[in-house]
Amino acid sequence: MKLNLKVWRQQGPQEKGRMVDYQIDGISEHMSFLEMMDVLNQKLIGSGEEPIAFDHDCREGICGSCSMFINGEAHGPVKGTTTCQLHMRSFKDGDTIYIEPFRANAFPVIKDLVIDRSAFDRIQHSGGYISVNTSGNTQDANATPIAKEHADLAMDAATCIGCGACVATCKNSSAMLFVGAKISQYALLPQGQVEAKDRAQNMVAQMDAEGFGNCTNTGACEVECPKGISLTNIARMNREFLGGSLTK
């Protein structure tokens, strides 16, 4: 198929960016979206132009590197799918496709479609862990049974890949789905409950310090999350945060 692409090009963090038009032909419906970008980049290299920079690594929807805003949606039109798992069969011959980076003040553009998501890491540094040393002498893994229901909910929260689609989608650039998922995972497990209060306080404080916005309950983040992280995680985060504030 033949496509018209409008791609965000930006030379560096301080440079002004703009949408640039590219025409591309011979795209197979079986290609992944990123393979289509590979074809475009090979074409650009062949004609002596600089290829488009974009983050990607595992190309199987789990590392969370890829981060394209496609036709106004994080990771494009298919639900529950990262950019790397989006296939060209979701588009038609002659389509015009807009490709932009995930945008948020807390995610500055580094180059073209590559953004800086280190704010997510810093939030995790502030409390995204259970304080246990590697000793090999922790209690036996089966010493504390965990209700399957809680273990499963913790797992659902833990499947977040840290891509930032929630932030890019939210009109307030809120990171609450991301932070809520991490806080929930630990709050649901007995091992995580020991530090639960401080964790919620510290992670929320860091989230605010990074310049992410607030949640106004539109639920757009949940809709666009490629891993289907549920909005209930935000409710649980609020509960943990409030509980922590009141008993501090």
């Binding site: 259970i130 090999g136 965990i146 273990a151 499963d152 913790a154 797992m155 995972q185 497990l189 091992q191």
Partner: peptide, 15 residues
């Protein structure tokens, strides 16, 4: 396995 459970790794569990 002991270490990972202590860290909060949500392994699959039975009922």
């Amino acid at each position: 396995i002991d270490q990972c459970v202590a860290q909060g790794v949500p392994f699959a569990r039975d009922y």
